[in-house]
Amino acid sequence: MAHDETRRNFLHRSGQAACAAAIVGTGAVLARRACSGDAWAIAPNRCVNIRLGVTGADKVCSSCAEQCVLALSAVRAVNQHDRCGRCCICPAYFDVRSQVGPDGLPTKKLCPRDAIIRTPIGEIDPYDPLNNFYEYTIDDEKCNGCGRCVMECKDPAGLGSIRLEVRYDLCLRCNQCSIAQACPEDAYVRVGPQPAPAEALEGGHA
């Protein structure tokens, strides 16, 4: 009898806990997705990694990489290739303060996740390896948006071709984005629902 009572109590309590967990979980999901049409964006004139006038590895803000609820942040670096100088010694690819090797290039890479791929454009001139352009591509399966490369590429050191972007295909559009809450510069902003696609092309025929 005592045994049955204990078992009933246990089942009762378990049921309550399960219900509570379900309610809390649903609430959390609802809260996270309460504004599922809203998008978050980085204001480039506020983010310390992007805005002009802030330089230096010690100033890099890594909140976008560290605060996102996703295991690998929804914020990633993007290289806008038409703006890139395709430099041989790219300060976003190399740690330009590391020791210079016998080939005249810095010996260390900047990206802590080795997420930048450097590919020569055309054949390398064996007599003058500096005589070449390189394409720099971000491996978005490795990048976590830590912002180091963005800080180094920005004007005046680089051409500012690498920037941080919220990947809308990955972002969960949390109602209370944890990056927005942590951002020290109020640079992580809600940009509202994405507009519905136009039904008719502007200026097109009816």
Binding site: C87, N131, N132, F133, G158, L159
Partner: peptide
Amino acid sequence: ANTRGFMIP
């Protein structure tokens, strides 16, 4: 000397 032109980012 500079078969790819001057590199002036």
